[in-house]
């Protein structure tokens, strides 16, 4: 994945430079493979050292990954069809380590779509419309800071958000609810800034923070005391 081998060849993370690396069925990957993604994700480059030689490859990619909620795929369908033993669901999600989870900005749950619903639903927005909106938001980001939000450093990000005292207090409240690390709060701000850009707002408001907080990962905070099977 990261590269190496006898000829010190670039890996997938480098091949995906300036593009998208899509990993399907993420928990099925080897733990060490997944952990090796941490450095390239963080630094945008990957250092490889082999006997007598060392080199650095670029690896500025957007990671997109997909996974099922449990081995059988029915957990969270809410109709009692998941027959995974207690603890299996947690173990399956646990194959993605905390540090790796922490580096993912957006977590989106995709509930099962009922067949009837799928056939009936008229798609309200085409990808073209969405793409235009994204391009606009990106333009706005670059105009403001010179780089897209994903490349903003911590301080630049905070100033770009321009949070007022109420919004700051609200961000703290959210972070406490989730028990977030500093990295988690930074992620919240980054996503909130982007949400505000998509909405065409110059300042990040409380509602953008709330929206951003929804895209959190499967946290350790359980619903009550009960394991949700």
């Amino acid at each position: 994945m990261v590269g190496g081998g006898p000829h010190l060849s670039p890996g997938e993370v480098t091949l995906a430079n300036d593009g998208i690396l899509f990993l399907d069925e993420l928990p099925e990957f080897d733990r060490t493979t997944l952990e090796s993604l941490r450095q390239p994700l963080e630094d945008g480059q990957v250092a490889i050292a082999r006997v007598g030689r060392a080199t650095v490859f670029p690896s500025r990619f957007q990671l997109i990954a997909a996974m099922n909620p449990c081995p059988c795929g029915f957990a969270a369908s809410g109709d009692g069809r998941c027959r995974c033993q207690p603890g299996v669901v947690e173990r399956y999600a646990g194959r993605i380590s905390g540090p790796l989870r922490d580096r993912m900005d957006l977590w989106v749950h995709m509930p099962r779509v009922e067949p009837g619903e799928y056939v009936r639903s008229a798609s309200p927005e085409t990808s073209r419309v969405v793409a235009d909106r994204i391009a606009e938001a990106r333009l706005r980001q670059i105009k403001r800071s010179g780089v897209p939000n994903s490349r903003l450093s911590g301080r630049a990000l905070r100033s770009a958000c321009g949070l007022g005292p109420t919004e700051q207090a609200h961000a703290v409240e959210l972070a406490e609810l989730e028990g977030w690390s500093a990295r988690g709060i930074e992620r919240l701000l980054r996503v909130a800034r982007t949400a505000a850009d998509l909405a065409g707002c110059n300042r990040v408001e409380a509602s953008h923070l709330d929206e951003a907080a929804r895209f959190r990962g499967p946290s350790d905070r359980r619903v009550g005391f009960e394991a949700v099977g």
């Binding site: 909620p69 995709m110 509930p111 709330d210 929804r214 619903v223």
Partner: peptide, 19 residues
């Protein structure tokens, strides 16, 4: 999404697996 977060802050709603 933002309304759900507010409900969650008040301890009225919890999210589990997208539901």
């Amino acid at each position: 999404l933002s309304a759900l977060t507010l409900l969650e802050l008040r301890g009225l709603v919890a999210g589990a697996g997208g539901r």
